[in-house]
């Protein structure tokens, strides 16, 4: 049962992802295809974000930040940072010095990745829709089979 509760969200997200993928490959309508791509990608975003969630945590916006200038920096330079980071985090999780001061935050890294992915997604969409508009102007249709038919006719006439 615990397993079910802990993995239920993945199954739903996978179902959503596959719904999007199904729309892309099953439909012959170019606009609906792009909607499908959007669904597929948005669901992948959900996969990333749901793996970044930490139970009982709050958003990764630091609550207690030493006032600017008064911070006791553990590292002044990047080279020092190399030396301190593993000590603080990887090697000793229960380190004496906890810079987060006991507050639990969700994992920010997937958020950053998905911000990038969302932007890439809308860029693809814009180019795709621009192409659809031109295809419609050139062929008078945005259905794949009708376009194929038009090209086939030309091919037959040519040969």
């Amino acid at each position: 049962m615990d397993f079910f509760v802990g993995h239920f969200n993945y199954w739903v997200i996978i179902t959503l992802m596959m719904t999007g993928l199904y729309v892309v490959i099953s439909t012959g309508n170019l606009v609906k295809k792009l909607v499908g791509i959007g669904l597929f990608q948005t669901s992948v975003f959900q996969l990333y974000i749901s793996l970044s969630k930490v139970r009982g945590a709050q958003p990764p916006i630091l609550e207690k930040l030493p006032k600017y200038g008064s911070a006791e920096k553990t590292s002044q330079t990047v080279t020092e940072l190399t030396a301190t980071i593993p000590q603080v985090t990887a090697l000793d999780p229960a380190s004496v010095y906890d810079p987060l001061m006991g507050v639990v935050y969700s994992n920010p890294l997937p958020h950053v990745l998905i911000l990038t992915a969302i932007v890439v997604g809308v860029a693809t969409l814009a180019v795709g829709l621009a192409l659809v508009v031109r295809i419609r102007e050139a062929y008078g249709t945005i259905e794949e089979d009708a376009i194929d038919e038009a090209e086939y006719k030309i091919e037959v006439n040519a040969s």
């Binding site: 990608q41 693809t124 659809v132």
Partner: peptide, 14 residues
């Protein structure tokens, strides 16, 4: 070229 690009876009994005 338009349909070629569109097909490429769909498959490339997948």
């Amino acid at each position: 070229a338009l349909t070629a690009s569109f097909n490429y876009l769909i498959l490339g994005t997948i």
